[in-house]
Design a protein around this nucleic acid. Structure first.
Length: 398
DNA sequence: CGAGATTCATGTGAAGTATACCTTTAGGCTTAA
DNA sequence: AAGCCTAAAGGTATACTTCACATGAATCTCGTA
């Protein structure tokens, strides 16, 4: 054991600074987004004069740099603010996180917690929580910029009334000022909003177009310079990562992750260079971990339903229907001593699993033979097998 | 043969229920003057 | 008399159930050519 660690220590790493490639890293130079950054900066600048800045709505596909740009700007603005003793506060919330900010109550509770007020998970009336949040907000003169990431998820689950309430809070605040930045991956999201919400939320709008392959390459080169030691990357590695990511609507986050994981794989193998086939391995690994992770954090019932789907797909059938799943699921529940949910609920569970991208579900009509969800597994065989193992363990299936 | 009607299996919306948790309040007990 | 603790009462959010109705194309029915 000691020998292993000794060797680990002396073996030199491919990385110079790994965190440069990690998802939450904010670089101090963002390429190919000069215009967007300037626009955002213009919108937010009034906050420094203690004026309310316009609400801002940012949209663009995943990995187009929305979050990074916003974080970059807010970091800068915070710096200036603290230097000049301006009471500016930035709150960032990701609305997608299940059980954190995916309902009205939980979002406001989360916000209140950000302001140092502990809110129980249940029990309080929602408007009470609003009041607590409100008084925390208005307790002193300050400007607050509230960033709601993945706001489309929130509106989809919790309705847009909550957004209306938030945009209206400002009118009642006496001392503080609140501006909202909404970030959405869904390009048509605003169009489905209540017009009142729409007009107040998107006083300013900025669209982030996808990066093209060349731009992603630039970004990768820039980061790789900091992240890796010289010559750690083989010929064409960056190009390939960029190409893969460009294929997926120019997702830079994905490209970076691909590069990092590929390097980790190479390093673990004790190689001194990352080569092209590591990228393929990395892609596989990322996909696997994304799914395994998502599944692991699901409630037991969800896992049981998913397991049923997997088991049924095993029988070499390309399409599975809700009814079969429910039957299997019920007998499964019997076996593992789980109280079965109703079909109604399972229907919703399946819809949610679809949303998570773990399965593909499509509602079809089979004419005379009724209407159902047609379900397919979207992942590769290998991952499916791993999943089954994991679920068997989690559900204690012998 | 083709237009409508029918049918099936389940999707989907609304309303109700169970659970877990919160605050408030009233009563009982302890404590200190 | 004041202070503290506990338990009951009254209230809420959330996950789930119950009930009832909606869907939509394959299939059936029946009038017509």
């Amino acid at each position: 054991m000691t020998a292993f660690f000794e060797k680990f220590l002396t073996k030199d790493s491919l990385f110079l600074d790994k965190k440069v490639l990690q998802a939450n890293y904010t670089p101090n130079k963002i390429l190919h987004r000069e215009q967007e950054i300037e626009q955002i900066a213009h919108v937010l600048a009034p906050a420094l004069r203690m004026e309310k800045s316009s609400n801002l709505f940012i949209y663009g596909k995943t990995g187009t740099g929305k979050t990074v740009c916003v974080k970059y700007i807010t970091n800068n603005i915070l710096e200036v603010a603290s230097k000049n003793r301006i009471p500016l506060r930035i709150v960032y919330i990701n609305c997608k996180l299940k059980r954190v900010a995916d309902t009205e109550y939980r979002l406001i509770a989360q916000l209140a917690t950000e302001f140092g007020k502990a809110i129980p998970a249940t029990g309080l009336p929602t408007d009470e929580v609003y009041k607590i949040f409100f008084s925390a907000l208005d307790s002193k003169e300050q400007v607050i910029i509230l960033i709601l990431d993945e706001i489309d998820q929130l509106a989809k689950k919790a309705g847009d009334a909550i957004l209306y309430n938030l945009t209206r809070i400002n009118e009642e605040l006496k001392k503080a000022q609140l501006s909202i930045i909404g970030i959405s991956n869904d390009l048509v999201f605003v169009d489905n909003l209540d017009p009142r919400v729409k007009s107040s939320l998107s006083e300013e709008e900025i669209l982030f177009p996808p990066y093209n392959a060349l731009q992603i390459q630039d970004i990768l080169y820039e980061r790789a310079k900091r992240a890796f030691k010289k010559d750690a990357l083989g010929e064409g590695v960056i190009e390939k990562c960029a190409a893969y990511a460009a294929r997926e609507h120019g997702d830079a986050r994905r490209a970076l992750e691909l590069l990092r994981v590929a390097a980790e794989i190479a390093e673990r193998k004790g190689l001194s260079k990352v080569s092209l086939n590591h990228i393929d391995e990395a892609e596989e690994k990322i996909e696997r971990e994304r799914i395994l992770d998502a599944v692991q954090t699901q409630p037991k019932q969800f896992q049981a339903v998913l397991y049923s789907v997997l088991k049924l797909s095993e029988k070499n059938k390309p399409l599975i229907f809700t009814g079969e799943i429910y039957d299997f699921y019920k007998s499964l529940c019997d076996k593992i001593n789980l109280r079965p949910l109703t079909q109604r609920r399972v229907s919703d569970v399946l819809a949610e699993l679809d949303m998570l991208g773990i399965i593909n579900a499509k509602v079809i009509s089979k004419g005379r033979y009724g209407r159902t969800r047609e379900i397919t597994i979207s992942t590769s065989h290998e991952i499916t097998n791993k999943l089954k193992e994991l679920l068997e363990k989690a559900l204690e299936i012998s």
